[in-house]
């Protein structure tokens, strides 16, 4: 009788892909809660829709690709993609927006490239970019500066599944531009920053409501670093370079360029630094590579925000750097012992 004789090592710790993904999900919870508190049920509806769509698409694709369902459905990666995409799109977008985006992310950006571990681009950001290019108006219409009390569950359902069009929402003053969007259009009109910033849309530091969500994501992100799920290099270098370059331009001309604090805490900067750019599959993996990758993303975010055609730039910055990740890795191999 031959015994069980596998190759060494014979010991394994209790880590698993599911555990890694679950911890990322836990880290997103504070941000989601603040989001919900400030913008109402819309975000929860979106998350739910996204998760259902993601898991269904994942199951269909796994079946088509002859892969086992249980281990891959339970790995949690599709859920992360779904939640990140749901957090990126406006909470009052109609239901089909998130369904379409998620399906695109899972089917095209993930499974057509070979599924978990093989996608060169961050699936959530591919889905987001597709939606932004295809439906710019929906994708830039965010709930206006109102509390959860206004957008109750019934209203949220109505936004998602009803027939209300974004034009009507704007007319009803239910929705409006994001601070980044507003800043861009106002600067475009030739107004000086000092005239634009006092608008209540900007809140205390970086946009009413949005700044609090960012802070909640920051808390979750720091917990992720402490849990050793992500490394410090990417978040620190993304935010560091974004801060540095915006500070430079802010010092050059503070009537044209927003403050570094504004850049770091507005839009999806924090979410990107801790949760999107750190997606291990599509990011750089060497210690020095991660820093180059992160710094480049921070710079690209500023460049696209300031001079590009889109108000926020996270998706494009991340996707552009995803392309460079293999090359960066190749040139940043760490020094091996004894070399």
């Amino acid at each position: 009788m031959s015994l069980y004789a596998p190759s060494s090592p014979h010991f394994h710790n209790d880590n698993s892909v599911t555990k890694v993904m679950l911890k990322v999900l836990y880290a997103l919870i504070p941000g989601i809660l603040v989001y919900f508190y400030l913008f109402g049920y819309g975000v929860l509806i979106n998350i739910l829709l996204a998760i259902v769509t993601a898991l269904s698409c994942e199951a269909i694709m796994l079946k088509l690709r002859n892969r086992p369902l249980i281990p891959f459905l339970s790995d949690g990666s599709a859920i992360i993609t779904a939640v990140l995409l749901a957090l990126s799109i406006p909470s009052i977008a109609p239901w089909w927006t998130i369904v379409l985006g998620t399906a695109f992310a899972i089917i095209i950006a993930k499974h057509l490239y070979g599924g978990l571990g093989y996608n060169p681009f961050n699936p959530a950001m591919v889905g987001y970019a597709m939606l932004l290019i295809s439906f710019p108006q929906i994708m830039t219409t965010w709930p206006a500066n109102i509390g959860a009390s206004f957008i109750n569950f019934a209203n949220s359902l109505n936004f998602s599944f009803g027939t209300i069009k974004p034009e009507q929402l704007i007319a009803d003053a239910v929705s409006g531009a994001t601070p980044l969007d507003y800043l861009k259009s106002q600067l475009g009109l030739g107004n000086a920053l000092s005239e634009i910033m006092p608008n209540e849309i900007f809140g205390m530091i970086a946009g009413n409501n949005f700044e609090w969500i960012s802070i909640a994501f920051l808390v979750g992100g720091i917990w992720l670093i402490k849990q050793k799920i992500i490394h410090w290099q990417i978040p620190v270098s993304v935010l560091g370079s974004l801060f540095a370059i915006s500070l430079l331009f802010f010092l050059i001309d503070d009537t044209l360029y927003a403050s570094p604090i504004f850049h770091v805490f507005s839009g999806a900067s924090i979410l990107c630094a801790f949760f999107i750019a750190t997606d291990p599959v599509s990011a750089s993996t060497t210690p020095r590579g991660k820093i180059i990758y992160g710094v480049s993303i921070g710079l690209l975010i500023f460049i696209i925000r300031t001079w590009g055609g889109y108000p926020d730039a996270v998706a494009f910055a991340v996707l552009l750097m995803n392309m460079c990740a293999p090359t960066i890795d190749y040139y940043t191999k760490p020094r091996t012992y004894g070399h």
């Binding site: 892909v17 281990p71 891959f72 599924g115 978990l116 571990g117 093989y118 799920i229 291990p280 993996t285």
Partner: peptide, 9 residues
Amino acid sequence: FTMPCIRCG
């Protein structure tokens, strides 16, 4: 069960 590498590092 062996899953694909997620390049977590």
